[in-house]
């Protein structure tokens, strides 16, 4: 019976034609696309793109890479110790930042915020932390708390709050409202709804964001050293300034390995945590 019905339908022509594969954009959208393309060309000009410079620079690149190899192991111990400090800054900064992000994100989630004023303040704080670049925060903390890893860690805390605060709040807002309604219906308090329904549902996304923050912080902590905020960055700067490219190569390889190990470990951890239940 079904077959007959289908074959009958396919044999005849539909009363309405199939819709076009693509919709022609309206005049406004066409203008917008055109404007974006024009700005891209203008941006290439603004970036002073020069094929000639690129071609002339190739021998220099080859020479620099040649001088980097073989990497020097002369200062391996101090490089290793700076590397450890870099990761310590990243790890401590991420953990503290993630922990501080949770209450801030609850206040910044529209459906959970205890008060509209608190919601706007939290959103503004997160936006401030996120939009100001970490190098600026590093300079700020170097000036206020002094040179060293503490300034770097504070920078990473702020960076983590800006990143996690936003993504945690969005993850909380996007959770299924059904379990929240069920808990409200049985007389649960707001805290009960948040901790029993919202946070567990948002947890996979929050764990992803936290581990990504750790990876990001590990990369960022390398750069922070360039402005005196501790870590391996200062070693790299000194090596480059003194034209000790073989030592710089050792540091770059170390950073590469560190970031790779953190990424692999966080990926394994993510899979393991997300399968568990409480």
């Amino acid at each position: 019976m079904t077959e007959t019905a289908f074959s009958g339908a396919s044999a005849g022509l539909p009363t309405r034609p199939a819709p076009a594969r693509f919709r022609r954009p309206g005049n406004g959208m066409s203008l917008l696309y055109l404007g974006a393309a024009a700005f891209f060309v203008y941006s290439l000009h603004g970036s002073e793109i020069s094929v000639e410079s690129l071609v002339n620079g190739l021998p220099n690149m080859a020479r620099l890479i040649g001088e980097m190899f073989p990497p020097s192991i002369a200062r391996l111990q101090s490089v290793g110790s700076a590397m450890l400090q870099t990761f310590q800054m990243a790890f401590a900064g991420t953990v503290i930042g993630v922990l501080l992000s949770v209450p801030l994100a609850i206040c910044a989630a529209r459906s959970l915020s205890p008060h509209p004023v608190l919601y706007h303040i939290s959103r503004a704080l997160i936006a401030l932390f996120r939009t100001v670049p970490d190098l600026v925060w590093a300079l700020f903390f170097v000036v206020t708390v002094g040179l060293g890893p503490f300034a770097g860690m504070l920078t990473l805390v702020v960076d983590a709050i800006g990143f996690c605060g936003r993504f945690f709040a969005e993850a909380m807002e996007e959770t299924d409202k059904g379990p929240q309604e069920a808990l409200t219906a049985l007389g649960a308090r707001r805290s009960g709804v948040v901790f029993s329904a919202v946070l567990p549902a948002a947890m996979p996304s929050m764990i992803n964001s936290s581990l990504f923050t750790l990876e990001k912080a590990t990369r960022a902590s390398v750069v922070l050293g360039l402005v005196g905020a501790g870590g391996i960055g200062i070693e790299l700067k000194v090596a480059m300034d003194l034209f000790q490219y073989d030592q710089a190569a050792t540091i770059i390889l170390g950073v590469f390995l560190l970031v790779l190990v953190v990424e692999r470990l966080s990926s394994m951890l993510r899979q393991r945590i997300l399968r568990q239940s409480v």
Binding site: P179, A182, A185, L186, A188, G192, M203, S277, V278
Partner: peptide, 29 residues
């Protein structure tokens, strides 16, 4: 609300939690 049990069409359990935790949520009443 604590006096009224409400069963929903979509069950409305917290999927990421254990069955036991979901049942214990009833005590929040």
């Amino acid at each position: 609300r604590a006096e009224i049990g409400f069963v929903f069409q979509r069950h409305n359990l917290v999927g990421q939690l254990s069955v036991l935790s979901n049942v214990i949520h009833g005590a929040q009443s």
